[in-house]
């Protein structure tokens, strides 16, 4: 039993952190939200070069995976740096096609997985019980949809909707398109993809929460009122202490879920990280005061991200139900 990141995993996190810091990712995210996707695509390719999108792809399809723990490591960093784009969706699509291949339906895996792993193709998708909208389908190279009829390659998307998260757009896949698979294997693969989507979302939420806490701790240490740093006031301290408790007890659930990929563990990670990140967002906004309530201040990128990830792939109620009732 050694429930700690190993040296390679820690180095992976450090190198992604360094790359995303050097890439001025917050500016890239703002550009993405403003419709300028070129810098975001460059960051995407660097993430792919670091192996991020190969982690969910099996080696026989030119991937490195499946490596859920490394995927969690990567998505914590994506969350900390507020990376934009359909990253969770691309990983979920890779998990979906991989499981279909394992069930004997290899055609779509052969067709898409190598390019998903290399970064050449980005994907977005909708999954059963995951809501009607795909993330950033106007930018993604392929739009997959799973519904009663099976899995299909959608011919495009309906009207693009804006999200509270300024770097995120949503749209429903258009009906029709090319059928890729149907039957029980799609149902099974979609469940598998939902687990990967939930794991990546949970890890990303954890990263969002950690970034919010870091920024807020820095703020309350230097912001002075009544002649003292506001971080010396007990009301402020205790609020941030509670944020740290929630994040530090959500973290092992993320990596425990990555190790077991057990449905109950994944559900627990999704619930706990949503709550911890959202709690961090509420505390961050309150303790920053009015400056935190502005769109121009970078904090807004994480504040809004924490809110939308809470509902992504099903809200807290759905996932709590999956903790106590049988879910596969």
């Amino acid at each position: 039993m050694r429930f700690a990141l190993d040296a390679g995993q820690r180095e992976f996190a450090r190198s992604l952190d360094a790359m995303l810091t050097a890439a001025d990712t917050l500016a890239v995210t703002r550009a993405w939200g403003a419709g300028d996707h070129a810098p975001g695509r460059a960051v995407w390719q660097r993430l792919a070069d670091a192996g991020v999108f190969a982690l969910a792809v099996p080696q026989e399809y030119e991937g490195l995976g499946p490596l859920p723990a490394e995927t969690a490591v990567a998505f914590v960093e994506l969350g900390r740096h507020a990376v934009a784009g359909p990253a969770v969706e691309t990983v979920a699509a890779a998990a979906l096609l991989s499981r279909l291949a394992a069930l004997g339906e290899t055609a779509s895996a052969e067709r898409f997985l190598p390019a998903l792993a290399s970064g050449g193709t980005s994907a977005t998708l909708t999954l059963p019980d995951g809501g009607p909208y795909a993330v950033d389908p106007h930018v993604a190279d392929i739009v997959l949809a799973v519904d009663e009829a099976g899995l299909r390659l959608a011919p495009g998307h309906a009207r693009v909707r804006r999200s509270l998260d300024p770097a995120r757009r949503l749209a429903a896949p258009l009906p029709g398109g090319e059928p890729l698979a149907k039957g029980p294997s799609v149902t099974e693969a979609a469940r598998h993809a939902t687990r990967w989507a939930a794991l990546a979302t949970a890890a990303q939420s954890l990263g969002v929460g950690l970034a919010l806490l870091d920024r807020t701790v820095a703020h309350v240490r230097q912001r002075t009122q009544f002649g003292a740093p506001i971080g010396s006031f007990q009301a402020v301290k205790h609020r941030l202490a509670d944020v740290l408790v929630a994040l530090e007890f959500a973290r092992p659930l993320v990596f425990g879920a990555a190790l077991t990929m057990a449905p109950g563990d994944v559900a627990a990670a999704k619930v706990a990280t949503s709550d911890a990140a959202y709690g961090a967002a509420r505390a961050a906004l309150q303790l920053h005061g009015a400056i935190g309530y502005t769109a121009e201040f970078d904090l807004a990128l994480w504040l809004t991200r924490a809110r939308v990830l809470r509902s992504a792939y099903g809200g807290p109620g759905l996932w709590r139900g999956r903790v106590v009732t049988a879910w596969e």
Binding site: F3, A4, F249, L253, G256, A268, A272, G317, R320, V324
Partner: peptide
């Protein structure tokens, strides 16, 4: 479902505490 959610939180919290403890034990072992 309100009560169900609280039951879920009890299960989640116990698992979180278990995993947190395994992480602490791993740190001590290192």
């Amino acid at each position: 479902t309100a009560l169900r959610d609280r039951v879920a939180d009890a299960v989640i919290g116990a698992r979180a505490y278990e995993l947190f403890t395994w992480a602490s034990a791993s740190r001590l072992a290192a």
